[in-house]
């Protein structure tokens, strides 16, 4: 049958197109994850890395020692909670800063929009580490910012505080680095809103605040969720920023993982930390999606 042949043809074309990316994900994402899961049940090698899979007697050397360590020693849970708090604060601050900015861009004339968007992604044009080093200079003890802050504090009789190598510096930089990831999905959403809806709401008696709270904000929730996920997940695992800008107390889960692999060379424990990180990120994003499942009903059809 010609119709059957056509359908087969279409199916083959679909596989041809989606095959390479699927294969890529399988090889470079699924396989490392499996290796990591396996590694988390093995023993650390004497000089780092992993001990042989079979011990001297030839028995399989698989155990849950690394998991036990994570769940019994409270210091790891503390670092984990601290990482969650940092990621959450970063997400909320990004949301608060990005929303007005995205709304402004979405409402500006078409011509200036492209330029404003370009400015938002402009930081990506320079290297990530260079931008963090720039913050080291900006927050450094001799920079104008630190002098101004400490000058004001001095007036009130408070001692000088260091801005650099503190939780404050880490948070400032986390927000700075992740802000574009919140702005872009929010802008993409807000830009699609039908202005007639706001006219209609106003016509029906809604004040400016009611128009925002009842129309714009609920319709923008898909963008808020997308932006929150794009900020929260990378912020949760970040290590470079606390490494460079944080104080001794600002070790986050990402730093722990890096330490296990590069310094302590305890691969099984590093794997456990990675797995806990991935699972909790997935669980939190899933929980947020589940909680918000009703809220975005119909909101995907902005302007229907």
């Amino acid at each position: 049958m010609a119709a059957d042949a056509r359908r087969h043809e279409a199916a083959r074309a679909r596989w041809l197109v989606s095959g390479p990316p699927l294969l890529y994900l399988l090889v470079f994402f699924a396989a490392p994850t499996l290796i990591m899961v396996l590694a988390s049940f093995r023993s650390p090698g004497e000089f780092g890395g992993l001990a042989p899979l079979r011990d001297d007697t030839g028995a399989l050397d698989l155990n849950v020692d690394a998991y036990v360590r994570f769940f019994t020693e409270t210091v790891y849970a503390q670092v984990f909670v601290k990482s969650l708090v940092f990621a959450l604060v970063t997400t909320l601050v990004c949301l608060a800063l990005a929303y007005p900015l995205a709304a402004l861009i979405a409402r500006s004339p078409k011509k200036s929009r492209d330029i404003l968007l370009l400015l938002v992604i402009l930081p990506f044009w320079s290297n990530f580490l260079i931008r963090i080093y720039a913050w080291m200079i900006l927050l450094g003890p001799n920079a104008a910012l630190a002098r101004a802050v400490n000058g004001v504090l001095g007036w009130f009789g408070a001692g000088p505080v260091p801005l650099l190598f503190s939780s404050f510096a880490v948070l400032v930089c986390l927000v700075y680095v992740h802000l574009p990831f919140m702005v872009l999905p929010l802008y993409a959403n807000l830009e699609k809103h039908d202005p007639a809806l706001l006219d209609a709401a106003q016509d029906l008696g809604a004040s400016a605040w009611q128009r925002f709270w009842r129309i714009t904000f609920p319709l923008s929730l898909p963008g808020v969720y997308a932006g929150a996920a794009l900020v929260f997940i990378p912020a949760l695992g970040i290590f470079a920023i606390p490494d460079l800008l944080g104080g001794p107390d600002d070790t986050l889960i990402g730093n722990l993982i890096k330490q296990q692999f590069l310094e302590t060379r305890d691969w099984p424990f590093g794997s456990v930390l990675s797995i806990v990180l991935t699972v909790s990120a997935l669980a939190l994003v899933g929980l947020a999606a589940w909680l918000g499942r009703g809220a975005t009903r119909g909101a995907e059809r902005v302007g229907a």
Binding site: D194, A196, A200, A299, R301
Partner: peptide, 8 residues
């Protein structure tokens, strides 16, 4: 365009 609120 009717301007019905799509999320309600």
């Amino acid at each position: 365009s009717y301007a019905l609120f799509p999320h309600m």
